[in-house]
Design a protein around this nucleic acid. Structure first.
Lengths: 150, 150
DNA sequence: GGAAGTGTTGTTATGTTATAACATAAAGAA
DNA sequence: TTCTTTATGTTATAACATAACAACACTTCC
């Protein structure tokens, strides 16, 4: 955790989250906000237990359910995403509207790129539709080498 | 496990697996074959521990590493897939050649449909390429309602 | 056949991720 | 305030996965 640089637009993302939650009539409580802040401050996806360790101080001994409840809330509000293939969580770049997202995960440096290709989501929708399937949400994660690492 | 019907073409899939492994010079041992058989016989994805319970008898008390090693082998040979969002394993429908696969997972009945849409894989490849990203493998899982359940 | 090397399995222990269940507290509405 | 709902604290445990090392079994080469 020592050399983990701060994400450039953290405060902006937090303010957006504040606004969205206010508009939606849901409560971005201190803990939820803290979890979101930790995730947004990280350039890479974090595991739930990493987040928990970050939250722990002499005063507060946080237990797993505390973190998972916050994560559940933040996912429900579209403020973060879960990367299933990494068992890790990452901030959403466009929390202001629901969308189908794709992730590019670098096998080498671990960096994650969030895409919103309408061609991908469109073709995926078409393929589902062709089977009579009604999509609710999707997990699209491509693992490989990013531009810098290849 | 009582009312779990047998998948129609299990024996065909097993024979194909036998042939592929022979051709590749890898060993589809008794245990690996048993795990593959259990997975193929199930119409729905199975967790590693479900497979383990199925394998256990009075004679053989199977431990987790046994199952996970077989799963690793079968995945490496493209004979099964892992569904990341379910932590479960399912037989591959086209083990004879490598491919990028998409899954439609029904939220209601749990059934899983395996797709190989070239439009999806193509657009995903294009989107990755546009970022200079070189894909190695992908996880594409759409959760929703299947034709029967909607 | 015997020895060496490789690949597979057995076994014990533990690591990692996630949730159940129930008690307490805080916030919002009447 | 009192009631109701929502959020948090706490303990325990479930569910998923791997590390590490010993034992066994194939293969190949002498």
């Amino acid at each position: 955790m020592a050399d983990m640089p701060t994400h450039p637009d953290t405060s902006k993302a937090m303010k957006l989250a504040d606004r969205l939650c206010r508009e939606r009539g849901v409560r971005l409580t201190k803990q939820r906000r803290e979890v979101l802040g930790i995730i947004n401050a990280s350039q890479r996806p974090l595991g739930a237990y990493e987040i928990m360790e970050t939250m722990r101080t002499d005063q507060a001994r946080i237990a797993p359910p505390t973190v998972y409840r916050a994560l559940d809330f933040l996912m429900a509000e579209g403020l973060i995403h879960k990367l299933e293939s990494l068992h890790a969580y990452i901030g959403c770049r466009h929390p202001d509207h629901p969308h189908f997202t794709q992730f590019l995960i670098c096998n080498d440096c671990g960096e994650v790129d969030e895409l919103h290709s309408s061609k991908v989501s469109g073709s995926l929708n078409d393929a589902a539709e062709a089977r009579g399937f009604k999509p609710d949400h999707s997990t699209v994660e491509v693992v490989g080498l990013c531009a810098r690492c290849r």
